[in-house]
Amino acid sequence: MSERLRRHGGNADVVRQELAAEHGITVSLRTVERAVAHLRQELRAEARATVRFETRPGQQLQIDFGERRVEIAGQSEKVFFFVATLGYSRRLHVRAFRGERQEHWFAGMESAFASFGGVPEEVLLDNARALIQHHDPVSRQVVVDPKLHAFARHWGFAVKACAPYRARTKSKDERGVGYVKKNAIAARIFDRFAALEAHLAAWTRDIADLRAHGTTGEAPRLRFERDEAHRLRDVAGIPPFLASRDLVRKVSSDCSVEVDGNAYSVPWRLIGESVAVTVTGPELRVTHAGQEVARHMLRAGRHGRVADPAHFAGIGRRKATPVPTAPAALLRPLSEYDAVAGGSW
């Protein structure tokens, strides 16, 4: 009975239906509810309970994504927030993205490593489809996406995934995403996406880093600098993993594709088409139907634009329609026409 009730999330009526269908046991819902009352209480307690254990300095980084609609430039826009929390110091790193694809997870982690100045022993994450291919809830066997495996090997950390549907199996229930939504974002309005990014950086530095944490009683920045910073593996000299990657993009109406917040031009005739983008070192190549259609050097920073004038050649150009002219033989003085008509007008 316990296993059946747990499988159905404490729903006594479903248990009653199964008992009738499988064993011919017909009882009232109230009878089943009384029989499983103590089990349902255990489930409720388990759902609220958090098994907390302290991680060593430099041991673990927890990552997660959340989304919220934010008013940017007068428009309501869905924004995806990447939140990374160091398990010991509780220091946060926050990034805003316009998507939650695998590349955004990787960019968020690399940004966190750069911000903290090092890499922890392990990274703890939920079962995001962009990162985990399969996680068996019984055997706890985890099948990691090959690119995440390569990413973790590149940076030298171990991947640790929560049990499916049990986010509380993280070592701590930090509610980092909720903290960002309610405190950093709240009901604020931004005139452009870059202003949102600047606000998040300032909020992390001036508010999140300096607050007295509810569990440790210390400011995350102080705890980090005193005990954790020197326990992280130094990232100096390690090139970005994202320096070599394959992406798929749709050409926008301004004849460009977006990569890491910057726009790169492609021939205008490909507007609306899906193209393959390959980033190798400092170079970006765009191909369509197996043919290279654009090549650019990567631009540093964000919100920039790289354009090749040749990609815009021919936009709006139309063939000129010649104005008909009369043959030379018809262009005669009016006096000749008067004579034929029998006099002048």
Rank of each mutant, 00 (worst) to 15 (best):
G9I: 06
D13H: 06
L19N: 07
L19D: 10
A21G: 07
H23D: 14
G24M: 04
G24T: 02
V27F: 11
V27H: 07
V32H: 02
E33P: 00
A37C: 14
R40E: 10
R52S: 00
R69Y: 10
V70N: 00
E71R: 15
A73Y: 03
V79R: 11
F80W: 15
R90N: 10
R101Y: 10
R101L: 08
S111Y: 05
A114N: 08
N127R: 11
D145R: 12
L148D: 02
A161M: 09
P164A: 04
Y165K: 10
S171C: 03
V177G: 01
Y179L: 08
K181A: 01
A186Q: 05
R188S: 04
F193V: 01
F193S: 05
A194I: 04
A195R: 09
E197F: 04
A208S: 10
A208R: 02
R211I: 09
L222S: 11
R226L: 07
D227I: 00
H230G: 06
G237I: 08
F241M: 05
R249C: 06
N262D: 08
Y264G: 03
S265D: 12
P267E: 01
E273T: 03
R285Q: 10
H288Y: 15
E292M: 15
G304Y: 06
A313Y: 07
K319C: 06
A326I: 09
P327H: 14
A329R: 15
A329I: 13
L330I: 03
P333D: 15
L334T: 07
E336M: 10
D338P: 00
